[in-house]
Design a protein around this nucleic acid. Structure first.
Length: 416
RNA sequence: GUGGGUAUCGUCAAGUGGUUAAGACCCAGGGUUGUGGCUCCUGUAUACGAGGGUUCGAAUCCCUCUACCCACCCCA
């Protein structure tokens, strides 16, 4: 019996890996332009980090974490998201003594025990950025601007930015009560999931897909109408900043984040072209997370972007990612002596920094040429008796089919 | 966790109770003695997801399980 990769995980082969390299490089590059620096944190964390950070009544913590006891009897969890670990590291190493705000980015695998479907895996990868240390809405706008630019630079046309404000704990609690009051008389008519949401997260009922629930929800109070003065001012400010950046967005009161730490700004970059899991990037502000983790009262804002989803959207958008295959030379040989020289030559040229390919399957000259062709090599050097006697190699241009001779000494220069 | 769909060589894909289980692609070798891409020939393969039934006989019918895909939930 063959052993398969665990459910919800994917192997990524060279035929795909170059695409990952492409987006990873582009992401690192845009982060650099915006002044974000890479941070690397462990894949495992103490379970308590997520219980406190993400919130122990959230779906993620309640039923999606890969948690286990290690041999030292510690409860360890594979990180299900990127923000809490970075916040933890920031506090642990007192990075707030550095010039503020702190701006980080990361490129990490995350783990959630879920039932896999299109755009959703148990091991998935995300790009993320975080800004710690400023309450100014310029930071929120900057985070969205980076996401917007990156998505555009990846050639994606059909993703739109939706924003909302989910208030701060005080105005949100007031709003939740208002919402419950409104829904209370209609409670019996709600679907079973929404009945459960009534206590836990009534805001979710607003975008339930059930038509019956949609009916009940008509005329319900909207979070945006209950923002406190500070949150209201903040929301106006983010919108103004986005306008200044000339970034188009729509206000979507239905956006509710599933992680407890979010406050005020919440946003998503969404598409409907890759199936039901259309959120390519989601994020927002979290003014109390760092305090919750035992740090000083330092606010933050950031996003997480699903790399698998990003790649999916790029594909449906018809984005062609170039395959980097720059082999400088394929060395084909005939005979034992030819092989010895070819080996020596390839070694020297590789040390010089050239990309050199050879056959290692004892193919005859015809087979070697065929192999080189299959590998998409543009130039082939041929070393046989004839060439050896002249101290030169024949160079065949695989595109035009023409052939010239170059001496051993001149080969390096020829390749440049 | 709840639904729906699908499972035949690495890939695509014939086959609907009796076949040595097609074919194509891929991969490997070759078409006279040192040259690719086209074409022709040959070859390789633990292919009927697993386990039980029914039947003289099952890839084809029934049951159970598993995996994958999709949707709900939730989210990246």
């Amino acid at each position: 019996m063959v052993i398969l990769a665990p459910k919800g995980t994917k192997d990524i082969f060279p035929q795909q890996v170059y695409k990952w390299h492409y987006v990873e490089k582009a992401f690192a590059e845009i982060c650099d332009r915006y002044g974000f620096k890479e941070v690397r944190t462990p894949v495992i964390e103490h379970t308590e980090l997520f219980q406190r950070g993400v919130g122990d009544t959230t779906d993620i913590v309640e039923k999606q974490m890969y948690t286990f006891m290690d041999y030292g009897n510690r409860s360890i969890t594979l990180r299900p998201e990127g923000t809490s670990p970075v916040a933890r590291a920031f506090v642990e190493h007192k990075q707030y003594v550095e010039v503020q705000p702190s701006k980080y980015y990361y490129d990490i695998p995350c783990f959630r025990y879920e039932k896999p479907q299109s755009g959703r895996l148990r091991e998935f990868h995300q790009f993320g950025i975080e800004i710690f240390g400023t309450t100014n809405m310029m930071a929120d706008a900057e985070v969205m601007a980076l996401g917007f630019d990156f998505i555009n630079e990846m050639g994606i046309k059909d993703v739109e930015l939706r924003i909302n404000s989910i208030g701060c704990p005080s105005c949100r609690n007031i709003y939740r009560e208002k919402l419950r009051e409104f829904l209370n008389p209609k409670y019996e008519k709600l679907c079973s999931t929404c009945k459960a949401r009534y206590e836990k997260n009534p805001m979710r009922i607003l975008d339930c897909k059930s038509e019956i629930c949609q009916e009940q929800v008509k005329g319900a109070p909207v979070m945006l109408d209950y923002l406190c003065e500070e949150c209201e001012a903040a929301f106006i400010s983010v919108k103004n900043n986005l306008d200044s950046y000339e970034i188009p967005f729509t206000v979507d009161p239905g956006i509710v984040r599933g992680l407890d730490y979010y406050t005020k700004t919440a946003f998503e970059f969404v598409t409907n072209s890759i199936g039901a899991q259309g959120t390519v990037c989601g994020g927002g502000r979290y003014d109390y997370l760092i305090e919750e983790l035992g740090g000083p009262p330092i606010p933050g804002v950031g996003f997480g972007m699903g790399i698998e989803r990003l790649l999916l959207v790029m594909e449906v958008n018809g984005v062609i990612i170039p395959e980097p295959s720059e082999t400088d030379l394929f060395i084909a040989f005939i005979g034992e002596e030819g092989r010895d020289v070819a080996l020596k030559l390839s070694h020297e040229l590789r040390k010089e920094g050239f990309s050199i390919l050879m056959d290692t399957m004892s193919r005859n000259i015809k087979g070697q040429l065929k192999y080189a062709d299959r590998l998409n090599v543009k130039r082939v050097a041929i070393i046989g008796e004839e060439e050896l006697s002249q101290n030169e190699v024949s160079i065949k241009d695989m595109v035009t089919g023409t052939q010239t001779k170059v001496s051993f000494e001149m080969l390096k220069d020829y390749l440049k």
